[in-house]
Amino acid sequence: MTRVLIVDDHAIFREGMKKIISTAPDLEVVAEASDGAQAVSTILNEPFDVVVLDLSLPQMSGLDVLRIVKEKRPALPIIILSIHPEEEYALKVLKEGACGYLNKECVPDELIRCIRKAVRGERYVSEALKEQVVDKLLGRSVEKPHDLLSDKEYQVFRLIVQGIPTKEIAYRLSIARPTVSTYRARILRKMGMSTNVELARYAAKHDLEI
């Protein structure tokens, strides 16, 4: 029996996922978490075969949970389930180690297929995302400014947008304060902006998970 952990801050949605997953005889939801900190603690202290993780969580974002867990338990399959469209986050979370990305509007069978593929060590990619990847490889897609950022630059970008001071960013990311300033300059240059306020407006406009 495949042991599944569900992480979502909405109890009604967790109940819905449990009902969907319970229709599969080989899958069982054995635990739930409602925020990022609880998710990390649960994952690191209990055995699971796969995690279904929301991006928008209290206390700690799903993206941060993904990074922490992948550092501690790199072999654990994690599926991201989110309200955000694939074009905004799918490629980024796959690069961070997720094995699949599903929109919350997906059909029940798709969720079950994704979980089963994840447990087999495979990645689940929707047809729409496959087309996006092909377009990117062939140079047919137009990248959004934030897609140009490296992983570390994106981490700094997220903290800047949250209004975190330079000193605190340096502490959280274990880098020097001048390095934070260097990253900030790169971010502004790549995104064609000049102030933190512009970065914050951009994040809000594109509904980025910060």
Rank of each mutant, 00 (worst) to 15 (best):
Y124P: 12
Y124F: 08
A128L: 03
R140K: 14
I83Y: 10
C106A: 09
R113F: 06
D147T: 04
E86W: 06
D109C: 03
P74E: 12
L137G: 10
H146E: 15
V156N: 02
Q155Y: 06
P165W: 00
I164N: 06
A90S: 07
Y101F: 12
L149N: 06
L81Y: 07
V125E: 08
E122H: 10
S126A: 13
E110T: 11
K144P: 12
C114K: 06
E87C: 00
C106H: 04
E168C: 04
H146C: 11
S126T: 08
A90R: 08
L81F: 01
C106L: 04
V161E: 05
E168W: 07
R158G: 01
E110R: 15
R140H: 07
N103Q: 07
K95G: 06
K95T: 13
R116G: 04
A128Q: 11
V133W: 10
R123Y: 05
L149P: 11
I80H: 01
G139A: 12
R140T: 03
K117Y: 08
G100E: 02
S126G: 02
V125K: 04
P77M: 05
R120M: 06
R140A: 07
L81M: 09
Y101I: 03
R123K: 13
A90D: 09
E88W: 08
L149T: 06
A75R: 15
L76W: 05
T166D: 09
N103S: 10
L137T: 14
P77D: 11
D151R: 15
V125M: 02
G100R: 07
L76V: 08
D147A: 05
F157S: 13
V142S: 07
